[in-house]
Design a protein around this nucleic acid. Structure first.
Lengths: 255, 255
DNA sequence: GAGTGGTCTAGACCACGTA
DNA sequence: ACGTGGTCTAGACCACTCG
């Protein structure tokens, strides 16, 4: 029990009241009261009402659809399984390919792919254990569902390892997966290290993924090692929180 | 190349300018220019300046420390390894205990623990495959480092399974780990399913973890199954993005 | 006391979609 | 044409910390 708040501000009361009504399911489908009408009910100015509403926007609870009004956000995230593939169902032992699983669900999957050769950015360079200025081949992808982007996927490979591969270097889907190609080139991966950070998107990410206010992203960095512990692949994914849930299955190792 | 923006608003220009200067490292340690001085330089009102600054707050880039001014946020997240334990170093094969690893780093680790018996909340009930109203034992923990909370950890067990265990039911640390106790009771876990969602914290989480504006959280749900595929443990963790990075190591399963 | 950010007022004009 | 939210102005008073 906190010792009696120091009189919350008016906009806090407004956002608290609205949050309670939203969580009670009051505005499903219908817009929230307009700014003007809230200003009237709370006998305050529009600016104060807007401050209260903006709290709820930043929490990811509502959005403004001008000039229709404010609406409650609803989300139906897809399941992302970094061990396996994608799907919409709870965990199962299946491991299917991305496009197959998506169309199965009646949604139209598509992607854009760009391939280029660039000096390894610092984050990648460190993980691929390259020298400053060493080149990498990058496959940059945006994956979409029904036209909406839901994930960016940038895969980096040491250029020396893959420059002979038409598959890796061409901006087209690789049905059997890039990892199969790498294995064929003699770089079969064993262990993959997964790193995760979650934060608010920067303007570039906001634009690339068309991200709504109040939506954080997770940045996933995968580093793939061969059995000889040589890093051969570094993937940077950006996953918006309103469109993706992640699921893993892990064998218990500690007592 | 987007087709020439439709004249960005003034506050957008302010936040863009400041973001550029911040990323160039201009304000490390020193405060940003005050609202009043920004209003003067941009020949605008304080309110517009505040709108620009609030953009940067929501992105998690800066914070206001009244009445000293606005400062750039810096973060040094700790490494969370859900397979193993905690640490501050990049991935390694070590698997140590929480308190041991933390004190090793010269930071003071502590925690608060509350134990109670409650009807399983819906999320837990579904994962533990319980009927409505069935009881669970909950161990609710807040873990702190140097007095700052960095993780909440709520572990639920079917009450029938653990009611005989003094260790599980007492609000004290279990040095050998609760999983060892469960194993001793005949409920050794094999597979654990990990679920992850990231979003902005709700007010309760904000208060419990003392979360700063612009900081998202990841909600981690772990469900532990015995070899006979009986769920015996459901853990809900709340991980603030400014204090935690997560690292996993996964054996490659797909080609 | 001076300067900081936090809250709030009472207006104004605009762009946009819907009716 | 109307109502919506988006931007912006020019003030005001307050609580707090620091010198």
């Amino acid at each position: 029990m906190p010792p009696s708040q120091p009189s919350p501000s008016l906009y806090t009361r407004i956002s608290n009241d609205l949050r309670k009504r939203i969580n009670a399911g009051e505005f499903s489908g219908a817009p929230l009261p307009s700014e003007a009408s809230l200003a009237a009910t709370y006998k305050t100015s529009r600016i104060t009402v807007r401050k209260g509403l903006s709290e709820l926007i930043q929490e990811g609870l509502i959005y403004a659809d001008r000039p229709r009004g404010y609406f409650v956000r609803r989300r139906s995230p897809m399941i992302y399984r970094p061990q396996h593939g994608f799907g919409k169902q709870p965990p199962s032992p299946a491991l299917d390919r991305f496009l197959a699983e998506m169309t199965e669900l009646g949604r139209e999957a598509s992607q854009t792919i760009e391939v280029s050769v660039v000096p390894a950015p610092p984050i990648v360079r460190q993980r691929l254990e390259l020298e400053e200025g060493e080149l990498t081949a990058v496959r940059r992808r945006i994956r979409l569902l029904d036209g909406q982007p839901y994930l960016t996927n940038d895969s980096y490979y040491p250029y020396g390892l893959v420059k002979g591969s038409d598959e890796i270097m061409s901006p087209a889907d690789i049905p059997r997966g890039a990892n199969a190609v790498l294995a064929e080139l003699g770089h079969q991966q064993g262990l993959t290290v997964h790193e995760y950070e979650w934060r608010m998107p920067n303007p570039a990410e906001k634009a690339r993924l068309d991200i709504t206010p109040g939506t954080p992203v997770t940045e996933e960095i995968l580093t793939g090692y061969t059995a000889a512990e040589v890093p051969v692949r570094c993937v940077i994914n950006c996953l918006p929180g309103d469109r993706i849930k992640m699921v893993l299955e892990i064998e218990h190792t500690r007592t």
